[in-house]
């Protein structure tokens, strides 16, 4: 699998505030990778660096084999970006935007743009400032898709969208794009919505990657252990693989990263256990387990 997106050692600070610290990974063609993090974790900054809008303090990035800092135009002609930070010109309508943008993209498809507008119910002749927030987002998505990108960077793509369109985008659109080999790197707080389409999950916290794993492996390796004890306990002892833990009377519960039965047994050996149950976690639960109690600074 080729490395459609690759970055290594990316570091970025705004003034004295570090936002990214030495992050790096590779993403292959056709993959859908979710970038999750709390507010201020650095997701948007990472997206902007990958798109060449801002430069890193250190490290290198590559999209489709091109350095976005050195070749921003070539990268952007082949990579689409939908970001909540990008505001469309309020005085333009969809037709004017297409007139403005079409000459900039060599693979711009007018029919495709019309189809997306129709399917997402975006009026082509209404000024942007007269559109709802969700409709603006749909218009932005239509514009990005009309350029037929090989890579799509989505920064909070579902913000302001209703449930129907969310479902439409997540199930239909993303599957359709990946079928055509489009690589998608998305950052979102809508973890549950995207859980079913993400091949990989990256959790970003305090400027570093806490998790960078295949979704299936992640859900397989992070398990919740619930035990009923003979005697009540005050707390769960610290262990490097425990992400979160709770003790209430004779009930203890902890989430184990890199779950193995041996590890769970070793932790439970501290008490006289009456009953044990091991269960899986949803992706949002895994995210919370990894990031709860770790405030981001923005």
């Amino acid at each position: 699998m080729d490395n459609t997106i690759a970055f290594t050692g990316l570091t970025k600070s705004f003034g004295r505030l570090p936002v990214l610290r030495q992050v790096g990974t590779t993403i292959g063609s056709g993959q859908v990778v979710g970038l999750f993090g709390r507010n201020g974790a650095g997701k948007t900054t990472l997206m902007r660096i990958l798109y060449g809008m801002i430069g890193p303090d250190a490290g290198q990035a590559s999209l489709l084999g091109l350095d976005p800092q050195a070749h921003p135009v070539e990268v952007r002609q082949r990579v689409g970006l939908v970001s909540e930070e990008c505001h469309l010109y309020p005085w333009m309508d969809a037709n004017a935007l297409e007139t403005f943008l079409a000459p900039l993209y060599p693979k711009w498809d007018r029919e495709l743009f019309r189809r997306h507008l129709a399917s997402m119910e975006v009026p082509p002749d209404r000024r942007v400032d007269a559109l709802s927030r969700g409709t603006k987002r749909k218009l932005m998505l239509s514009l990005a898709l009309a350029a037929q990108p090989e890579v799509l960077l989505l920064d909070e793509p579902l913000g302001g969208l209703d449930a129907v369109v969310r479902e439409q985008i997540v199930t239909t659109l993303i599957h359709s794009l990946t079928d055509h080999g489009v690589t998608i790197f998305l950052s979102t707080h809508e973890i549950e919505q995207f859980a079913k389409v993400c091949d990989r999950v990256i959790i970003l916290s305090h400027g570093g990657f806490l998790v960078d794993r295949e979704t299936a492996a992640l859900t397989d390796q992070v398990r919740r252990v619930t035990a009923t004890l003979e005697h009540p306990v005050e707390a769960v002892p610290a262990h490097p693989q425990i992400l979160s833990a709770r003790a209430h009377g004779t009930q203890v519960e902890f989430v184990l990263n890199g779950f193995t039965q041996e590890t769970a047994d070793a932790i439970l050996a501290n008490w006289k256990v009456r009953e044990v149950a091991v269960s899986g976690l949803t992706l949002p639960e895994i995210f919370i387990a990894f990031t709860a109690g770790k405030e981001e600074v923005s």
């Binding site: 135009v73 970001s83 990008c86 010109y89």
Partner: peptide, 14 residues
């Protein structure tokens, strides 16, 4: 001022 600059800066224009 109108926050359209990020959109302009994200276009394939140097």
């Amino acid at each position: 001022r109108t926050n359209t600059f990020p959109f302009l800066a994200a276009l394939p224009l140097s």
